[in-house]
Amino acid sequence: MTATDIAIIGLGKIATDQHVPAIRACRDFRLAATVSLGQSLPDVPAYEDMEAMFAAHPGVAAVALCVPPQVRYPLAVESLKAGRDVLLEKPPGVTLAEVEALRALAERQGCVLYATWHSRHANGVDPARDWLAARRVTGGKVIWREDVKRWHPGQAWIWQPGGMGVFDPGINATSILTHILPDPVRVTRAEFETPANCETPIAARLSLLTGEDAVIDVDFDFRETGEQVWSMWFDTDAGRIELSGGGARTVADGRLLSDGAALESEYARIYDQFAGLIADRRSDVDLSPMTLVADAFMLARHRRTDEFHDEQKT
């Protein structure tokens, strides 16, 4: 089987850390080009705009959009109108409406659109979903606390409108939660802490409610300088299940269902799924993780806190 030529648009930290090695390890894709301002890879043709890249590489059939969400929409439109299949790094856009517009455009163009949620591919997520399928959730807790200076050094776009602030990692939690719980949840309360010099929150506390009125408390914080915590647990009518390491490790009633490290194989599985979607000519655009985030922004009480200044760690 011939590999699909793919181009990466936006060669930032997530692209170089995750997308590049995942594509190179995937037999279904060949990294044919990159488009980025001031960044390139050895032995891969590099361009600073997509029009030039498409002109030079008409065989590129797919693109992975890894630019910040604020500038992703026009690039996705250009790619789809050029007849290319499109993979969107999370979050898929800055608004729900623009992603719905991309979904409609992809359908009209006969292209594949894939809104990725890498944390759903963590080792313990599917075992957790299977375990919860026949159980009723009675309560739960989500804790996502990490050091923004460690994971997003110098990324000022996170603090600008559309950047989501602490919800940039927090949406990983909502992507897991919406995938594994047997029933939908809704946001009933949200409290944000936003630095005085920023437009997006550095911390957030949410309350979610299941269809059967079980409360799930959510704690997101970008200021964790100690142990990084990406965990959640749920009590049910038949025991407790706990996920840690961003969904990599799952323990149900003391029994280990799955183990692994955060980010292990997640992007490899993303590209396996993208290849399958291309083969089937089918899109996958699930907006439920982003809907919870949007609802939190609509309901939030806001509190200004100390200014945030990013001093990059070496």
Rank of each mutant, 00 (worst) to 15 (best):
P74L: 03
P74W: 00
G110S: 02
L75C: 05
P92T: 00
L113A: 04
V60A: 10
D85H: 15
A82Y: 01
A82M: 00
H118V: 13
P74G: 01
L80K: 00
C111G: 03
G93W: 02
H121M: 14
E100Q: 15
L113I: 02
R84C: 06
D85R: 04
A104M: 13
L105V: 07
A115T: 05
V67C: 11
P92K: 02
A61Y: 09
E107R: 14
R120Y: 09
G83I: 09
V77K: 05
S119L: 12
A122T: 13
V60S: 09
R120H: 08
P69L: 03
E89S: 12
T116V: 14
T95V: 09
W117A: 11
V99D: 07
E100D: 14
W117E: 08
A82H: 03
R72I: 02
E98Y: 07
R103M: 12
K81G: 06
A82S: 10
G59L: 11
T116N: 14
G59R: 15
G59H: 15
Y114R: 10
E100L: 14
P91C: 03
N123W: 11
L105N: 05
A61G: 15
G83W: 07
L88C: 04
E107G: 14
R120S: 10
T116I: 12
R84E: 04
C111Y: 02
L113H: 05
P69Y: 06
N123Q: 14
L75V: 01
A122W: 13
E107C: 12
H121K: 14
A62G: 11
V86Y: 00
E107A: 15
L80M: 06
V94I: 13
L65K: 00
P68K: 09
R84L: 08
T116F: 04
P92L: 04
L113E: 04
K81Q: 15
P68A: 11
G59T: 14
A76L: 08
H121P: 08
L105M: 08
A122Q: 13
V112I: 02
Q109C: 02
L105A: 06
H57D: 10
A64N: 15
A76G: 07
L96N: 09
A76Q: 05
S119P: 05
L75E: 04
Y73P: 01
P68N: 10
P58C: 07
A104H: 14
Q70A: 11
S119E: 12
P92E: 03
A62E: 10
L96W: 09
P74Q: 07
A82K: 01
E89D: 15
A106K: 01
D85Y: 03
A104L: 15
C111N: 06
A76K: 08
K90H: 15
K90V: 10
H118A: 14
P92I: 03
G110D: 01
Q109W: 00
A76E: 06
A64V: 14
R72E: 03
A97R: 13
G93C: 03
P74C: 03
G93Y: 04
N123A: 15
A97L: 11
E98S: 09
L88P: 02
V94E: 07
R108S: 12
G59M: 11
C111D: 02
V77G: 03
A106E: 04
K90T: 11
A115P: 04
P91L: 07
